[in-house]
Amino acid sequence: MNFEKVIDRQKTNSMKWDFVSERYGSDDLWPMWVADMDFRAPQPVLDAMQEVINHGVFGYHRRPDSLFEATASWLKKRFDWGVENNQLVYTPGVVPAISHLIQTFTEKGDGVIIQPPVYYPFYALINYNDRKLLRNPLKETEQGFAMDIEDLEKQMQEGAKMLLLCSPHNPIGRVWSQEELEQVAKLCEKYNVLVVSDEIHADLVLKGTHTPFAKLAADKGMDVDVITCMAPSKTFNLAALQLSYVVFQQEEAKKQYEEQLQRQFVGIDNPFATVAAEAAYREGEEWLEKLLDYVQDNVDFVKQYIETNIPVMNVIEPEGTYLVWIDMRELNMGASKLQSWLREEGKLALSDGHIFGNEGAGFARINVAAPRANVEEGLNRLKQAYDKL
């Protein structure tokens, strides 16, 4: 597991590397945007997929019980969360899963709360499904970004039916404390709001401890409806295999969701996804621990580099994820000008802060799940652009 090795991903139909021009308008930009890694997957995963290739038959595939068992075992080991096999429903990605959950448990016009600046597909999922977007922006404090609990209650009083919780939070990188989650749970219990908790980054915790929202609510004896979305995709760099899962606390809710998937003919995995996920959960923990150390070192490098060379910018150090939120507001450029400057002068393809919501204007998100040489190249470009100002 050599995370220092630079792997050429160009001409592999990589969204991150080969479609920069299509998204950003130029093919000479250094890509640090989309949330996948520039690392090979764990060797046990590659070995398991090679066995499928060697067999050579790719007919219709049935999801094995062993995948359920491996997933439940992983959740117990990593989070001390006891989940039974019959609580799990596998899906082709967390974003489609959330869309199907919105369709299943809300009606057109129902209010759905998000906490911006937040993962930008949340906006599309709510708008495309004709639900009412309710905003509960995070607030900036001396200790960093935090939930605005008082405003969250106001949004629930507006008649919200669902809260999309991003935990750990993307792009801020917060790993919510048990105290924060308990405050949210109390409000959801009071106002009967269903929580759909996107915990796809749960395994990628750098500081603190991730607590599954459903586990916390159950441990506290709260009467809160929680549905959790998770996946091995971010954890082990398996995003293209399109496998995620939803954890239900209530049998009736699971049944309703499965009926929704049946109506849309969703449900068959490909064998590569199945064996990769199972191998990752059974044999990938050592790789993950080394990855987290490497990502933390990259975060530290980014923070020190910017403090030394571009002090006008401020790194919001992530507690989780491999994404770093950088405050560039002191450049006083405004969202549109900053976006142009990063592309034209920095020759960088970063995730522009404003796409995560108006609250993200003046920020940018960079992906540090890459060899140090790749990260340093991006930072050098940023410095060169800054030096020209």
Rank of each mutant, 00 (worst) to 15 (best):
E4Q: 13
I7A: 04
W17E: 14
W17C: 07
D18Q: 02
E22A: 15
Y24Q: 08
Y24C: 09
D27K: 14
D27Q: 12
W30R: 09
A35Y: 06
A41V: 06
P42V: 08
P44I: 03
A48L: 01
I53D: 13
H55M: 01
Y60T: 03
F68V: 13
E69M: 06
E69L: 02
S73G: 07
L75A: 06
K77W: 01
D80K: 06
E84G: 14
E84K: 15
Y90R: 05
H100M: 14
F105T: 11
I114A: 05
P117A: 06
D130A: 13
K132C: 07
T141N: 09
Q155C: 15
M156S: 04
E158V: 02
K161F: 04
C166A: 11
S167W: 00
H169C: 10
R174L: 14
Y191G: 05
V195P: 08
S197F: 02
E199S: 12
H210S: 06
A218N: 13
G221S: 10
A231T: 15
N237H: 02
L238W: 05
L238F: 04
L241Y: 12
S244F: 01
K254F: 07
K254E: 07
Q256G: 04
Y257G: 07
R263N: 13
F265Y: 11
A273Q: 06
T274S: 15
E289T: 10
K290G: 03
L292V: 03
Q296K: 14
Q296D: 12
D300K: 14
Y305K: 03
G320L: 02
L331I: 09
G334C: 05
A335P: 05
K337N: 13
K337W: 05
Q339R: 14
E345S: 14
L350D: 04
N358M: 02
A373M: 00
N374T: 13
D387N: 13
K388S: 15
